[in-house]
Design a protein around this nucleic acid. Structure first.
Length: 215
DNA sequence: TCGCCAGTGCGGATCCTGCT
DNA sequence: AGCAGGATCCGCACTGGCGA
């Protein structure tokens, strides 16, 4: 059993997640057993999550969102406030994320802030990540996902390891654009805080499938 | 009353983190 | 390194509702 992730810390009230989850499951006419089978999680675990008696890791949320066939953002707001784009015409949709808000995820390698969580089916996925891993061993397996990625160092120094290039150090204000299909890992350099704004292309679904650790 | 099913409660295993 | 405390997660047993 993997314990690589810490409990998620949703910016929305904890009670809303369980409530939303139950609502979405009922809307699909699924029982706890059906949902648990599809998510690969025990029934009791799902029940506890729905009743807010257990904080859920991102890994679990990901499985649940897949089982219910919804964007992960819907777990926090079952009624999307902003519709996805419907064709070439401008959709006019927008999302404002105030400083310090957004959906927060804590893992051993990162603390993520996931802005614009209320927008579903985004074409790019912005993530603000506090990098924690300082060695490749600590980081684990290199991550890869379809599309491209842009990273801008907001604070501290980051060492980006990729499978095709020598490791490169990026200081505050530096940025890099790369093919995210290439295995890569962000490591923090030094003892201070290390924060990166990362923007990943490709639809969120593919990103979620291939890069659960980053979202 | 009985059987079935959905949901809940409880306790143990495992892992992480902080402290010494 | 070893230990303790806390948290997640799982499996099993139990409860409650409902129909036959």
């Amino acid at each position: 059993m993997s314990k690589s992730t810490n409990p998620a810390s949703p910016a929305s009230p904890a009670g809303e997640l369980g409530k939303s989850l139950r609502e979405l499951r009922k809307q699909r006419g699924m029982t706890l057993s059906e949902a648990s089978e599809r998510a690969g999680l025990p029934v009791s675990t799902l029940s506890k999550i729905e009743n807010n008696r257990m904080s859920v890791s991102y890994d679990k949320m990901l499985r649940i969102s897949r089982a219910l066939g919804v964007d992960i953002g819907q777990l926090f707001s079952p009624e999307p406030s902003v519709a996805p784009p419907a064709g070439p015409a401008p959709s006019g949709r927008r999302s404002i994320t105030r400083a310090g808000s957004g959906y927060a995820i804590e893992t051993s390698n990162y603390a993520h802030l996931y802005p614009a969580a209320d927008l579903l089916n985004k074409r790019i996925v912005p993530i603000i990540a506090d990098i924690r891993a300082r060695t490749l061993k600590e980081f684990g397996e290199l991550i890869r996902h379809p599309g491209e990625e842009y990273a801008y160092v907001l604070e501290g120094t980051v060492e980006l390891h990729t499978e095709l290039y020598a490791p490169v150090r990026l200081a505050q204000g530096d940025s890099i654009y790369f093919d995210s299909g290439m295995g890569h890992a962000y490591l923090a350099v030094g003892d201070g805080a290390c924060r990166v704004l990362s923007i990943c292309s490709g639809d969120a679904e593919h990103l979620i499938e291939s890069r659960p650790d980053l979202l």
